[in-house]
Simulated assay, not measured.
Amino acid sequence: MTDPPYNPTTTPVMDSKANKFGHLDIWGFILKFVEVLLSFVAFVLEEVVATCNSCGVLYFFEFVSCTAFLFTLLLFILLASPLHKKVGIGSWDRLDFGYTLLISLLFILASILFLADNSGSDLETGAGVFGLISALVFLANVAYLLLKRRDKIFKTTDKTPSTPPAQVTNPEEEKLRNGENA
Rank of each mutant, 00 (worst) to 15 (best):
L105R: 01
W92C: 08
L123Q: 15
S104C: 10
D93K: 14
D96E: 13
D117T: 01
G88D: 15
L132W: 05
F107Q: 12
G88M: 13
D93V: 02
F114N: 02
S91G: 09
L109F: 12
L106F: 13
S91V: 09
L123A: 10
R94C: 14
T125A: 09
V129L: 13
L136W: 02
L95R: 03
L95P: 06
L95Y: 07
L123E: 09
T125S: 11
L115T: 05
F114G: 00
T100M: 09
I112F: 06
D96T: 14
L102Q: 11
D117P: 00
L123P: 04
I133T: 04
G98Q: 14
F138L: 04
G120C: 02
A127Y: 08
A110G: 03
I112N: 01
L101W: 11
I89F: 15
I103K: 08
I103N: 07
A127F: 08
I108H: 05
G128A: 02
T125M: 09
R94W: 08
D122G: 14
I133D: 06
L136G: 08
S111K: 04
G120L: 00
G90C: 12
T125W: 12
D96L: 14
S104F: 10
Y99N: 03
L105V: 09
L139S: 04
G126P: 00
A110M: 00
V137G: 02
S104M: 06
L113D: 06
G88V: 13
A110Y: 01
L113W: 01
A116D: 01
S104Q: 10
Y99V: 04
S104W: 12
S104V: 01
F138R: 07
G126I: 00
E124K: 10
A110L: 00
W92F: 11
A135M: 03
G120W: 04
I112R: 01
L115K: 04
L132N: 01
L109A: 07
L139Y: 04
I133C: 02
V137Q: 04
L102F: 14
V137I: 15
I133Q: 06
L101G: 03
I108L: 13
S119A: 11
S91T: 15
S119M: 03
G126N: 01
A116R: 09
L109R: 00
L105S: 11
G128L: 01
L102G: 14
G90W: 15
R94Q: 15
F107N: 11
V129R: 03
A127N: 08
L109V: 10
L102W: 12
S134W: 12
L95M: 15
